[in-house]
């Protein structure tokens, strides 16, 4: 690892100014769980690390009836998992954050670092996308907000410019009629990272699904909205057969990645299983029975 300067701004604008000053030499430092690995493997060699560690405002988690749930980008996974506010308004998010990685990572890594690094085998993106998240990004010349749909561009690539900081994740006020389900799958129980995950938001109107949002994550370069399956499920009352059909369609529609954690075929199979289970669960069906 090369030597670097470690800066600790006290405000977000000071941080963006520092980033602007040092240009390409500088890099944001949040929990460090991804960054330190990259530095040690010499994949990156920034001369200046701008730590967001002193920006208490960026750790806050608040709920505003109009705006919704506001999560500071520096909130750690465990802060989110344990937050009463999150558990009250978005239990699925608390569960997702409390179930990812391992205790060490959850205690150290931040949601902002997770999103900005955009490693495909992560949990929050698919879940947040299903919930219609919106992100606040600040640069030297001000702030902008973008919907989560536009954020993840590709592997390790997000819609942010150099010098910008992700400050906040906003989830709109929960719609009481919509239920969101999230499930991750590990290749083996010893894995930390998901080989695939799936988020499903539905409005269940007397057995029929409406406003379906189905997103596959971790198995694709960036979280992928499965429009075809959404259309198929919309307006349908879900039976075991429908769940199985949706599962086959999901496996078909996704653009899987293929790597050491699982090849394309395996990823499709896992997403098929996840889809069938989640759709069945959303329709109060028992997915464990077959034949």
């Amino acid at each position: 690892m090369r030597d670097f300067h470690y800066l600790e701004p006290r405000t977000v604008s000071e941080a963006t100014a520092m980033l602007a000053d040092h240009g390409e030499e500088a890099c944001v430092f949040a929990g460090g769980t991804a960054l330190i690995l990259a530095l040690r493997q010499r994949m990156m060699a920034p001369g200046v690390l701008v730590s967001l560690g002193q920006l208490e405002e960026m750790r806050a988690i608040r709920f505003d009836p109009k705006e919704g749930l506001l999560i500071g980008a520096m909130a750690r996974h465990n802060d989110i998992a344990r937050s009463k506010i999150v558990r009250q308004h978005y239990p699925v998010v608390a569960e997702m954050a409390g179930g990812l990685a391992n205790p060490q990572v959850r205690n150290q890594a931040t949601i902002g670092g997770n999103l900005c690094y955009a490693d495909p085998s992560t949990d929050p993106p698919a879940c947040l996308l299903a919930l219609g998240a919106e992100l606040t990004i600040k640069g030297q010349h001000g702030a902008r907000r973008i919907p989560m749909d536009e954020f993840n561009v590709d592997y390790f690539t997000v819609a942010m410019e150099p010098g910008e900081i992700l400050t906040q994740i906003r989830l709109p006020p929960p719609d009481q009629e919509v239920t969101t389900f999230y499930r991750r799958h590990l290749r083996t129980p010893a894995e930390h990272r998901p080989v695939a995950n799936l988020a499903l938001a539905v409005r269940n109107r007397g057995g029929a699904f409406e406003d379906v949002r189905l997103i596959v994550g971790a198995a694709t370069p960036a979280p992928q909205l499965l429009d075809g399956v959404q259309d198929y499920l919309s307006g349908r009352s879900v039976t075991a057969e429908v769940a199985a059909e949706a599962a086959d369609r999901a496996a078909e529609e996704m653009f899987p990645i293929s790597d050491g954690r699982g090849d394309e075929g395996f990823r499709r199979q896992v997403v098929r299983a996840l889809t069938r289970r989640l759709v069945a669960e959303a329709a109060n069906l028992d997915w464990k029975e077959t034949e």
Partner: peptide, 28 residues
């Protein structure tokens, strides 16, 4: 069940403990 050295043409592809996954306390 968990550990598998992945070689490509004799080159170890998962020479780290994130990708070569040994059992953890909560996996057993």
């Amino acid at each position: 069940l968990c550990e598998e050295l992945q070689f490509e043409e004799g080159r170890l592809m998962n020479g780290n403990l994130a990708d070569y996954t040994m059992p953890t306390a909560d996996s057993v």
